[in-house]
Amino acid sequence: MSAKIDTALPLEYQTEQNRMNILGFWIFLGAEIVLFATLFGVYGVLGHRHAGGPMQQDLFIIKDVMIQTMLLLTSSFTMGIAIFEMRRHQLKGMLVWLVITLLLGGGFLYMEIQEFTHYVHQGATMQTSAFLSSFFVLLGTHGLHVTLGIGWAVLLIIQLLQRGLTPVTARKTFIIGLYWHFLDVVWIFIFTFVYLAGLVS
């Protein structure tokens, strides 16, 4: 651990190690952007191949999509507030907002699982058509990221309760915040190019 602590900076930036970890996580997010781009590319190419199966308009329900979008969008906002509270050194406020974020994220995940099971019951599975294969892979990868993010944040909350707010736990929280906002950014593009574009008649 670097001994040089610059107390003029927010906790998460105070050590060289912290600054390097945050920079490294941004580079990871760059790679994640490219990962999702390949999946969007596949959906863009195969999204019109319905193979006689259901089309976008037959499956998507705009009301449910809007609820999912609101849940994730609001959770990105509450995660932002958690980081804001962290910079005010308010551990309690930070934990409250983190828990609210996770509840919203859990709600999103519940809606998505409901949506997928509904599709499968309608006979729209991954094997039905190229459209549905690429749809489930793109949305499944995003949903998996949300699931991992929730598990990761739960572990972090335990650590915050045990160790309190230190430069190390602050850096970890900041990084998970970046991850969570990134998932919302990916969802904006899924909402736009999968759901809205699929529902334009």
Partner: peptide, 24 residues
Amino acid sequence: DKAALTINILYAAFIAVVIVAGSI
């Protein structure tokens, strides 16, 4: 590191556009 971050994200976005638009 804000300049490095911005360049990193812009480059990733550029690659993303090339992958998606290029494939289609």
